[in-house]
């Protein structure tokens, strides 16, 4: 990553909010900024595009060139906006040709380039259509073609799939993944959907309250969440405790784990690994605690039980088990997790 790609420290100071995020993206790499609403993801993206000025301390360099003092219209950056923002008065073709025109291409050249890009995203037949005649998925592809038409070295996508319905989303997601793979510049993608992030990105950067709280490959982040937000996203129960070899002490509870950790440590396990009992189970399985049922909801084919007690936890059980054990809110149950199902790592 010497010189090539994006290196940025995005500092934006506002009265009630500070964003301070360091980002490195190699050419050809796709990095997803993942985080809850209001975490500052979109602000980070707008700062990269030049739509928000950086505060002192912030800097952006792209392929070795300092960008933070360059106005938006002169940055080699293409951006796909959340609602696509296709110009309603221009045809799909002219939307895509807009960038090349602004960057000095002749009308014919710009249109030729635009037609080629529309062809690439499979919309050659819709070149003459106005944005309001396009479906959501088509509009998304035109927006991508428009951003790519300026031959950017940095591609920014703000919630590129959020405006689509579930079915279209699946299809567009896989297409987008293909187009991103073809793109040889750096890509930064903002999303609050973990699935989009996992599928589209080579690396995740999790932002909460304006700061990076975790980064790594999708697999790494999914296995070893480091904040409650990430844990919820990837569907794990997560606790912070004190490691002591094969055990981690979380509050009053002592978890036995496979991994050996010392000092500050996380323990994570999936809700499906939690077993529930009406009465204290025979023998004495380890990692056992008594909990009160706080709520019960459907979760896919299973039922997710919210447990309150020494630790809060989710347990996924079958509907049959719910009936059999009479798992209603307010009832007290015993919960346990096998050591082999837990995952412990240093905090």
């Amino acid at each position: 990553m010497s010189g090539g790609g994006l290196r940025a420290r995005l500092v934006v100071t506002r009265p009630a909010f500070t964003l301070d995020v360091a980002l490195e993206v190699a050419p050809g790499e796709v990095v997803a900024l993942l985080g809850p609403n209001g975490a500052g993801k979109t602000t980070a993206l707008r700062a990269l595009a030049g739509l928000v000025a950086l505060s002192p301390g912030g800097e952006i360099s792209l392929d070795g060139r300092a960008l933070h003092a360059v106005p938006a219209e002169r940055r080699p950056v293409g951006m796909v906006f959340q609602d696509y923002l296709l110009f309603p008065h221009l045809s799909a073709l002219d939307n895509v040709a807009f960038g090349p025109r602004c960057r000095g291409a002749s009308k014919a050249e710009a249109r030729r380039a635009a037609a080629a890009l529309l062809e690439r995203v499979g919309l050659a037949a819709h070149a003459a259509a106005r944005p309001r005649q396009l479906s959501g998925g088509q509009a998304q592809r035109v927006a991508l073609a428009r951003a790519l038409a300026v031959r950017p070295r940095l591609l920014l996508l703000d919630e590129p799939l959020a405006a689509l319905d579930a079915h279209t989303r699946l299809e567009i997601r896989s297409q987008l993944r293909r187009h991103l793979a073809d793109f040889d510049g750096a890509t930064v993608l903002v999303t609050h959907d973990p699935l989009d992030a996992m599928v589209l990105a080579d690396r995740l950067v999790v932002v909460e309250e304006g700061a990076v709280v975790q980064e790594g490959t999708p697999g790494d982040v999914a296995r070893r969440p480091r904040t409650d937000y990430v844990a919820r996203l990837v569907g794990l129960n997560l606790y912070r405790g004190a490691g002591d070899g094969g055990r981690v002490k979380v509050g009053e509870l002592l978890f036995s784990t496979i991994e050996q950790v010392e000092g500050q440590a996380f323990v994570a396990f999936p809700p499906a690994a939690v077993a529930l009992y009406r009465s204290r189970p025979d023998g004495s399985p380890r990692n056992l605690w008594q909990a009160r049922i706080d709520g019960v909801e459907r979760h896919g084919d299973n039922v997710r039980v919210h447990l309150d007690g020494p630790i809060g936890a989710f347990a996924d059980v079958t509907p049959a088990a719910v009936a059999e054990l009479d798992l209603t809110p307010g009832r007290t149950v015993w919960a346990s997790v096998k050591a082999t199902e837990t995952h412990a790592y240093p905090a």
Partner: peptide
């Protein structure tokens, strides 16, 4: 935001 979109396209 349309004006911003145009700016990112080099206008």
């Amino acid at each position: 935001r349309y004006e911003e979109a145009a700016a990112t396209l080099g206008a």
